[in-house]
Simulated scan of single mutants.
Amino acid sequence: MSVKYAKRMDYIKGSAIRELLKLTEQPEIISFAGGLPAPELFPIEEMKEVCVRVLDTDGKAALQYSPTEGYMPLRKIIAERMKKSGVEISPEHILITSGSQQGLDFCGKVFLDEGDTVICESPSYLGALNAFKSYLPKFVEVEMDKDGMKMDELEKALQANPNAKFIYTIPDFQNPSGITMSVERRKKLVELAVKYNVPVVEDNPYGELRFEGERLPAIKHFDTEGMVIFLGTFSKIFSPGLRVGWVAASPEIVRKYVLVKQGADLQSNSMAQREAAAFVQMFDLDAHINKIIEVYRKRRDLMIETMEKEFPEGFTFTYPNGGLFTWVEMPEGVDAAEVLKKALEEKVAFVPGGSFYPNGGNENHCRLNYSCMPEDKIVEGITRLGKVFKKL
C-alpha cells in the first residue's frame, strides 16, 4: 500500500517522553522520566463531591455543547488567580484549551508558515518543540545561564532572523533545566519583543509550585503592548487528567486562537471545565497547592542530597527553586541515550537530554523528575543511577 502523507509527517517523531512513560507501567522500574504529578496528592474524595454537585446543579449544561471560549465562571476564576502573578486581564481575553499542550499547538497554527523562525531557550520543552515542528519552522536556540535566557544573545537572534514569528520561553522552573528567569530579564524580554515586533509565548505550568522565595511577576505583567501570550494549566497544580488549560492574550490574538479551536475541537470538555470551577468554589485550591509544594520540596531536597552523595566527579546538576525537574550534565563525549540503556538494565529510567535541543547536539545531558516517585524510591533510584554513572 502506497499512501501519500502530508510533508509535515516527515518531521513529526514519536515523543521520547511518552514512550518512556510506558515503562512506568512496569512496577520494577523506578522512573524519573515523566513530568508526572504525584498521583497520591490528587483530591479524589473532594472530586467525588464536585462531580455530584456539578451534575445535580448544572448537569444538562455540563453534558451539552458550550461556547468555544470556555465556561465563563472558570475564566473569571483564572483571571482572578492570574493577579497573583501580577497580570490584570479580563475573563473575556481568556480561552480555555484542552491542556496547555493544545495552546502550544495553536501557537504554531496561528503564527507559523513553513520556513518561519521560532526563537527558544536552549534547551527547551520537548512537547512544545514537537508541537511547533508540525508547521515546519526553523528553530534558533538562545543560550541560558542561571538567570535564564541571555538577552544579548536573544537580541542577536532577533536581528539575524527578521522572519521570527515568536519567542518561546518557560520562565519559571524551566522544563527541562529547572532554571528561573530573573525579573530584569523578564522586563528586557518584553522590551525586545516590542522593539522587534515579535510576540512572546510565555508557557507557565509551574509558576505556582515555588518552594522558597517570593513568586516572581509573570512576563505578561510587564506587557503593555499586547505582545505576550500567556499559557496556563491546572495540570501541575490540580489534575492533568482533566486537561484544562488556557490562553490569556490580547483580544486580537485570542480571536485568532478561538478560530483555530473551532476547527480543532469546537470547545474544551464542558464537564471538566465545570468540575475545575466547582473545586475552586467548594475547596481551598491554594491549600491544596501548598500541600503539593511541601511534598515536592522534600523530594527535590532528597534527590539533590542523594545525587551529591552518589554521582561521580564530572557530573553536575541544577538546583531548582520549584517545579518538577533537575537537569544533569555529564562529561563531554558521553551519550545519555546510551547511558539510558545501561540504566534500564538497573531498572531506573530518565529522559536523555538531546531531544530537548531542536537542532541536535548536547547529548551529554539528561532530565530527572522528582515529583512522582516516593522518597524511598528516589534514594534507591538515584543510588542505582550513580552506580551506572561511576561505571562510565
Rank of each mutant, 00 (worst) to 15 (best):
S2E: 11
A6K: 04
K7R: 10
K13Y: 01
S15H: 02
E19S: 01
K22L: 08
L23M: 06
F32H: 11
P37H: 13
E45G: 12
K48I: 08
V52C: 02
V52E: 05
D58K: 15
D58Y: 14
K60C: 05
P67Q: 09
P67H: 09
G70H: 00
Y71F: 12
M72A: 02
L74E: 03
I77N: 14
I78T: 03
E80D: 06
M82F: 05
K84P: 15
S85E: 08
E88I: 01
Q101F: 03
Q102A: 11
C107E: 12
C107R: 14
L112T: 11
D113K: 15
E114H: 10
D116A: 05
T117N: 15
I119M: 10
I119A: 11
S122Q: 09
Y125T: 09
A128E: 12
F132N: 11
F132P: 11
K133T: 06
L136M: 07
L136K: 08
V140I: 13
M144D: 13
M149Y: 03
E153R: 13
E153L: 11
E155F: 02
A160Q: 10
N161F: 03
K165Y: 01
F166G: 13
F166S: 12
Y168I: 02
D172H: 05
Q174F: 07
G178N: 03
I179L: 02
S182K: 03
E184H: 06
K188N: 00
N204R: 12
R210N: 14
E212N: 10
L216K: 04
P217F: 00
E225M: 00
E225F: 00
G226N: 01
V228M: 00
I237F: 04
V244F: 15
V244S: 13
K256G: 01
Y257K: 13
Y257E: 09
Y257M: 15
V258C: 12
L259H: 03
L259K: 04
Q262A: 10
Q262C: 07
A264V: 01
L266C: 07
L266N: 06
S268G: 09
A272D: 11
Q273G: 09
Q273A: 08
Q273S: 09
R274F: 12
A277P: 11
F279R: 02
M282D: 15
F283Y: 04
F283T: 02
D286G: 06
H288R: 10
I293G: 07
Y296Q: 15
R297L: 13
R299N: 13
R299Y: 09
D301T: 13
D301G: 15
L302R: 14
E308T: 04
P320Q: 08
N321F: 08
P331E: 12
G333H: 10
D335A: 06
D335P: 04
K342I: 08
P352S: 10
G353D: 03
G353I: 05
G353N: 05
P358W: 07
G360W: 13
N364H: 05
L368N: 05
M373A: 12
D376E: 13
V379W: 09
L385V: 01
V388Q: 15
F389Y: 05
